[in-house]
Write a protein that binds this DNA or RNA. Structure first.
Lengths: 164, 164
DNA sequence: TCTTGACTTAGAGTTAGCTCTGGATAGTAT
DNA sequence: ATACTATCCAGAGCTAACTCTAAGTCAAGA
């Protein structure tokens, strides 16, 4: 066995194991640690990192916070708050409440983009069928769809109609 | 009047006008042009850029494509296809179809993140009410919510439960 | 013993997308 | 004419989040 740490799960995982489980690179794991994102990781007598299941849970949490749009330094701030205990409950609640608002706005934005992209997909499908983009632009079904999607009081939506 | 170009709309807009209308900086607009994203922008006899309404529509399109996750160079590729005319209809359709798939996946991912963040928000609201995170973790309502949200066959979701 | 391969460190390099600097020129207002 | 603002260009600098390099340590298998 090359990885003795790996074979005895009670002692935790070495970095190679964590790479396999998380999909993150060893470089990235060390980078996260340097940036203060994994303050619980310990090292054995040879100086080798030993990751526990708690560290793996933190990595999942970090992934979630990252996906929510948080930067590394903001995640570090959250972890520092966590380590300070119940005196920082309010700060952490504020952070999650803010994340939820940001995510909601982001998802609404993405829905708008999705509508536009879907319209373009339909437009180009018709263009291929008819042989030209100009013909598709004159197509009754396309014109009706365009009207339905973009003839709203939203100036931005109106501006996008003709390009591309 | 400082901006004579601005006051005569038939001649188009100068860069300052476009900055106001789009929220992009003049630097960014020149950068986009340098990167081949605005091949229709012309210059007057003094070398000053003159933007038309078509250019503004392209900027809206570029914003949409950027929001859909496309990189600058991929947007340039799209614009090159557009300029090549109907011979590239298939490529452009493929691009939009791919964008839709990517966006759908991204939105599904974001919904998962949203569930986790919303759970944390509820958890920390309860923690503040009860005075400690440990107490909130023992709370019946929280435990039921946690079970409902994360006791799925999804290993990832299970792993996240305890951290933070 | 030697090789293999995973690990260690500090620190340099990369990529995308801007963002800014400096110095010159152009156009308008008084 | 003077002052002021907007614009031009080339090119350097910045930030985030990695990503890699170099030089060396360590443990296990043949």
């Amino acid at each position: 066995m090359v990885n003795s740490v790996e074979s005895d799960k009670s002692k935790g995982f070495n970095i190679g194991e964590v790479v396999k489980q998380t999909g993150l690179s060893a470089h990235t794991l060390r980078y996260y640690e340097k940036e203060g994102l994994l303050p619980f990781v310990t090292k054995n007598s040879s100086g080798i990192r030993v990751y526990t299941t708690t560290d793996l849970r933190w990595l999942s949490m970090i992934e979630c916070l990252k996906d929510s749009g948080l930067q590394i330094k903001e995640i570090r701030q959250y972890i520092e708050w966590f380590r300070q205990g119940d005196s920082t409950l309010q700060q952490r609640l504020d952070l999650f409440a803010n994340r939820r608002k940001v995510l909601e706005a982001e998802m609404a934005r993405m829905q708008v983009v999705m509508n536009k992209i879907t319209f373009k997909e339909t437009l180009y499908t018709t263009a291929l069928k008819l042989g030209s983009l100009a013909a598709a632009d004159e197509d009754k079904t396309i014109m009706r769809l365009k009207k339905k999607l973009f003839d709203s009081p939203d100036d931005f939506d109106k501006r996008i109609q003709e390009a591309g």
